[in-house]
Design a binder for these strands. Structure first.
Lengths: 141, 141
DNA sequence: GGTAAAAATGCAATAAAATGGCAAAAAGAC
DNA sequence: GTCTTTTTGCCATTTTATTGCATTTTTACC
C-alpha cells in the first residue's frame, strides 16, 4: 500500500491529509503487529525525519480510529494497541501474559453470541492469552 | 457462595485470609459485571465499614489474579476490569464503545486458532464491541 | 491465649498512559 | 497568494497503576 493510497483514504474520510496522519497510518500498516502510541512514536523517531509530538500521535490515532482507518484492540496490557483496518479482516490476536507482545493470528470468524435486546454488535474480537515462545522458554528466570 | 468458601479458596491458594482479599473477592462475586479496581473501591466504600486503601485493593486484585481466583479481562476502555473465576466459565463479554460498560454474555466456547510453534494458549476470550441499548438510544446527544 | 516470623496494609511519592486548553502553524478552497 | 478552518506543538492536568518503607495483621507454634 503506497502513500497516495493512504492520502486518498484520509481524504475520503473527510479529513485533511497531514504529515502526522500519513506517518502514523504508514507506520501501523508496515508493522507486523499492533502497536501502542508510544511504539508508533519510537518507530517514527527512528525511521522518519519529521517526528510529531506525542500528543499529535494520540490525536492522529484517535482520528484514524474514529474514521475507521485503524482499530483499537482490547488489550490486557496497560497501553492501547492499534492495527490498520485493511482487506485482511477477521483475525484473532495472541497476547503474551509475560511480555505483553500482541500478534495477529489467522482465525475463523467466531459466531456472534446472542445479545441483550437493544444492543448492537459492531465487531467481534477473539483474544488468545498465553505465553509466547520466548517467554515460555525463559519463564523460570 | 459464602464467606467461608472465599476464605477457603484464598487459603488453598497459599495466601493469608485478609479483610481486603475477602472484601474484594466478595465484591467481584456479587457484581453482575466485571469491575475496575476503582469500582470495587466505590462498592466497598458504600457497602462496607472497613474500606481498604486504594493500593491495597490493587494489590489484593493482583494477588487474586495471579492465584487464579479472579481474571483480568482484555478491555477497550482505559481501566482494567476483573471478574471472579467460578464454575460458570467460557463466556464472552460485550463492551459498549460509548459508555465502556462491560457485561457478560452467554457464549459458545470459540475454537482455538492455530498458534505459532512454541506458543502456548492458556485462555480464549471473546469480546463483542458495539453499542449498549442506552447508548444506542442516546447516541445523537 | 501469648509470642515470634512472615505477609499484608497504609501512606506518600512516583510512574505510565492519556487528555484538555490554547496560541501558532499548516492544509485546502478560492 | 490570501483567507478560513483544521491540525499541531507545548504545557498542564487527569486517570490508572506501581514502588518503597514503616506499621499492622495473620498465622504457626508453644
Amino acid at each position: 500500500m503506497n502513500d497516495p493510497d493512504f492520502s486518498r483514504r484520509i481524504r475520503d474520510a473527510g479529513g485533511r491529509v497531514t504529515a502526522a496522519r500519513l506517518a502514523v497510518l504508514r507506520c501501523l500498516a508496515e508493522a507486523d503487529e499492533p502497536l501502542t502510541p508510544d511504539e508508533v512514536l519510537e518507530h517514527l523517531a527512528r525511521n522518519s525525519d519529521h517526528v510529531p509530538d506525542r500528543v499529535t500521535i494520540y490525536r492522529a490515532i484517535d482520528w484514524l480510529a474514529v474514521h475507521g482507518l485503524v482499530r483499537r484492540l482490547a488489550t490486557v496490557g496497560r497501553a492501547a494497541r492499534y492495527e490498520p483496518v485493511e482487506d485482511r479482516e477477521a483475525h484473532a490476536h495472541f497476547q503474551c501474559r509475560r511480555c505483553a507482545q500482541t500478534r495477529c493470528l489467522p482465525a475463523p470468524t467466531p459466531p456472534l453470541p446472542p445479545l441483550p435486546s437493544g444492543y448492537v454488535a459492531e465487531r467481534v474480537e477473539l483474544v488468545i492469552h498465553g505465553l509466547c515462545a520466548a517467554c515460555r522458554a525463559g519463564e523460570n528466570e
